[in-house]
């Protein structure tokens, strides 16, 4: 296992994340464009055109190339060489900014947010998500009553999306983390955005319908598509409280996910 090769791969994938959206997301946006009308259709058609220009010309689809949040999940079933992953990711993300002509969106210096965890597999999984701040500004944490049911959680999440209104870029993808501690709930809500596959569970479907009843619409000027997807990730809760993290993702929910086999 070659540290330089891993760094090269992360650099290339970080650049690619900014101009190549996940295929499921591209399909969901195109679907919504086909089902919408009026101003909302103009917004969605423009987004479709924008995505194809970005992909063709390899230019960031959105100028806010954000703060890079990177998950490194290291399998321990095989022997992993001694590699400083935090340092590798930092160097790779900085290189990606120079090589990919990404915007220096952070004050002082470019610093990725890195989550490292270990599991029982024989590969290293890396997930790269540039997080733009139009939507990130509306992410929130809610410490709720321990006896709150799903109806209460639903109301809280819908209120959080309502607060975002049309300020970020709807249609949104909404990540929800339920349970654990304050930091766990927020972390799960962020990870939920990296697992947006548009196969909604019954609860997620219900939440999505509730969010879309806000009628904020794509572009925030009214319409059917306030959100395209919702993902809930859960963890056991404390008997005295329920932590709920809500992460708002704009339509431009950039995610690259890949594996490196451990030889």
């Amino acid at each position: 296992m070659d540290a330089a090769l891993i760094e090269r791969t992360i650099t290339d994938e970080a650049v690619r994340a900014t101009y190549m959206l996940p295929s499921g997301l591209r399909r969901a946006i195109a679907d919504a464009a086909g089902k919408s009308s009026g101003l909302e259709k103009k917004v969605l058609d423009s987004i479709v055109r924008n995505i194809s220009i970005g992909q063709k010309c390899r230019i960031p689809v959105c100028q806010d190339t954000g703060v890079f949040e990177v998950w490194v999940k290291i399998g321990l079933r095989k022997r992993v060489p001694c590699i400083n992953f935090s340092a590798i990711v930092r160097r790779a993300v900085r290189k990606a900014h120079a090589e990919g002509k990404l915007r220096a969106s952070m004050k002082k210096s470019i610093e990725p947010v890195v989550h490292i965890s270990f599991n029982d597999t024989c590969f290293i999984e890396i997930i790269i998500t540039p997080r733009g701040f139009g939507s990130e500004n509306y992410s929130s944490l809610h410490m709720m009553n321990p006896e709150s049911g799903f109806e209460d959680v639903k109301r809280t999440v819908i209120e959080a999306v309502a607060r975002a209104g049309g300020h970020p870029c709807p249609p949104y993808l909404v990540g929800v983390g339920i349970g654990g501690t304050a930091s766990k709930a927020i972390e799960m809500s962020g990870e939920a955005l990296t697992r947006m596959d548009f196969r909604h569970s019954a609860k997620e479907k219900e939440l999505l319908a509730g969010i879309n009843s806000l009628k904020t619409g794509a572009g925030g000027m009214g319409g059917r598509f306030t959100a395209l997807g919702v993902r809930i990730v859960e963890f056991p809760q404390h008997i005295a409280g329920l932590a709920v993290g809500v992460r708002i993702g704009c339509w431009c929910n950039r995610v690259r996910r890949f594996r490196i086999e451990i030889p």
Binding site: I47, I53, P60, C62
Partner: peptide
């Protein structure tokens, strides 16, 4: 005037 949010590539062109 409202520009289409997130459409950086489109406006760049």
């Amino acid at each position: 005037l409202v520009a289409y949010g997130g459409c950086g590539a489109l406006y760049g062109s």
